[in-house]
Structure formats: structure tokens, C-alpha cells
């Protein structure tokens, strides 16, 4: 089943930057789609258009067969609830505990007053702990979020998005600020979520070695346009040069 269908999407920022120039693709349920491309090629803009953190200029976005390009208010929030997102900079609330950071993932389905006075039902705490178990850091539940290492913080961020029971999980360069070893372990959690929970993952990545290992399909963006679409294992030297420019050389990280 097609989960996400994007057609002829354009994004022009106020300063005149034409970040997306007519991008069209589809995402099937259960896929692990990876988007690659140079910095500034429009990867982040594309992801942020999908869950409408950024307003697209023209084009359509369909999620679960429904046009969500111009929905607003309550309707938009209910779509956002079904789409989890993980960021490069983790974006946790630094001064709060890991557990309350995870619970934040559920705010959308809570009453405003209840969430302000933190009157959460016990079941939410149990679920939050379960999400932390999924990413393997349940023992850090009561620690302040900013005392964790980068890799641990990213796992908390993943747990936060799991709290939404998302149909689609977006990840904007989730391992770009982590070291190679940690990168791999964080990517394994994405794989686990994709395989065991059946969540569709759309992920921006930089390293081709990670792409070949985890992606089921690849889209390459160059200057806001799709230049490659297909199997990650078929990206050879020539394609690599097309995507990253003639000067580029592939670096292997292990």
C-alpha cells in the first residue's frame, strides 16, 4: 500500500532560495527509504515538508491516500501525531528527565491542562518505559537528558517518536553528529523498528556504507531535483560522481 505520495513538490524560501524543484516519489508501507545528497541539496526541506514543519510552495503531498498539502489546525495535528521525527541535533528538552522527554511524544493526544500539570495516567509511564526498553536505555529513565552522550540522546529521541506509535518515521540526518561506531548502533535501532514494528522509515543519510547496509531503496537529490531512484547496491562509481560531483571520492567508514 502506498503510504506517502509526493507530486511535483516545489519549495521557495522567502529569501528566494529554490530548495525543491519539482520532486515526485512514492513511499510504500514497510519501506526503509534513504535520501542522499550533498548538504544544501534539499533533503531536510523535503522531510520537513512531509510533516508540514515547512509549508511547501506548490505541489501535493498525500499521506494514507489523503491530500495533506494544505490542511490546518486540528486536522494537521492529527496527521503530525502519526508521523514521528528524529533530528540531527536530537532536540531533547535538556533540563528534563529522559522519561518526561519520552512522554512528550504523546502530548498530541493529551488534554492541554493535564499535560501542563503533568497529570499523566500510569499507563503512559509504562508505555514510555517500554519505548526506552526498545532502544535499550531503560536504566537511564530518571537521568537529566543533557547528561547523556550523543548516541544515548538520539536513542531517547527515537523512543520519543515511538511514543507516537507512528505510521511513518522521518529521520533528518540522525547520525550526522555521532561517531562511526555509535552511528551504526543507532541505525540498528532504526532497522529494528522498521523490521519488528513494521514502521516505514524515511531517512536522510550522508554515508554510503550505511545506505548500502540499511536502505531498501534510495533517492538521490541534487540541487533540489531527484537524480537517482532505486536499489542502493546499484550505486556505482559513475552514479556516485553524478550525485556528489566529479571531485568527490567515496570514504569508507567502519
Amino acid at each position: 500500500m502506498t503510504l506517502l505520495r509526493i507530486q511535483n513538490l516545489h519549495k521557495i524560501y522567502k529569501n528566494g532560495t529554490h530548495a525543491l524543484k519539482g520532486v515526485s516519489f512514492e513511499v510504500e508501507e514497510g519501506e526503509f527509504l534513504v535520501i542522499i545528497g550533498l548538504s544544501g541539496s534539499g533533503k531536510s526541506t523535503l522531510l520537513r515538508c512531509v510533516n508540514r514543519l515547512i509549508e511547501p510552495t506548490t505541489g501535493t503531498i498525500e499521506f494514507l491516500g489523503k491530500d495533506i498539502t494544505h490542511i490546518k489546525g486540528e486536522e494537521l495535528r492529527s496527521v503530525k501525531k502519526q508521523i514521528g521525527m528524529v533530528f540531527q541535533q536530537f532536540n531533547l528538552i535538556k533540563r528534563r528527565s529522559v522519561l518526561s522527554n519520552v512522554i512528550v511524544g504523546r502530548l498530541g493526544s493529551m488534554k492541554t491542562l493535564d499535560s501542563i500539570f503533568e497529570r499523566f495516567p500510569d499507563s503512559i509511564y509504562d508505555e514510555a518505559k517500554k519505548c526506552l526498553e526498545t532502544v535499550g536505555i531503560e536504566e537511564k529513565a530518571d537521568v537529566r537528558a543533557d547528561s547523556l552522550s550523543g548516541g544515548q540522546q538520539q536513542r531517547v529521541a527515537i523512543a520519543r517518536s515511538l511514543m507516537q506509535n507512528p505510521k511513518l518515521l522521518l529521520a533528518d540526518e540522525p547520525v550526522a553528529s555521532l561517531d562511526p561506531a555509535t552511528s551504526n548502533s543507532v541505525m540498528q535501532y532504526f532497522e529494528k523498528i522498521n523490521k519488528e514494528l513494521g514502521t516505514t522509515v524515511v531517512c536522510n543519510l550522508h554515508f554510503l556504507s550505511l545506505v548500502r547496509r540499511y536502505a531498501t531503496r534510495v533517492i538521490a537529490l541534487k540541487a533540489g531535483e531527484i537524480v537517482y531512484q532505486g536499489n542502493p547496491l546499484e550505486i556505482d562509481e559513475d552514479w556516485f560522481k553524478t550525485i556528489y560531483g566529479d571531485e568527490a571520492e567515496e570514504v569508507e567508514i567502519r
Binding site: N51, L53, R77, S78, V79, K80, K81, Q82, I83, G84, M85, F87, Q89, F90, N91, L92, I93, K94, R95, R96, V104, G105, R106, L107, G108, S109, M110, T112, S115, I116, A157, R160, S161, M163, Q164
Partner: peptide, 29 residues
Amino acid sequence: IEDGPVEAITATGANKIQVVWYGVVPQII
């Protein structure tokens, strides 16, 4: 303030007041 947490909490589908309370307030106390 840092926009990151605000963006992240908006992305979960939280409403405006919740975003301010969880994303803004801890950063400005």
C-alpha cells in the same frame, strides 16, 4: 531560544500551549 526542541515537539502533534510549556519554558526559566 533553541528552535530544535520547539520543532521536535511541534512535530509530535502537540498544540501551541503544549509546545510553549514543554519547548520554550524550560529554556527560559
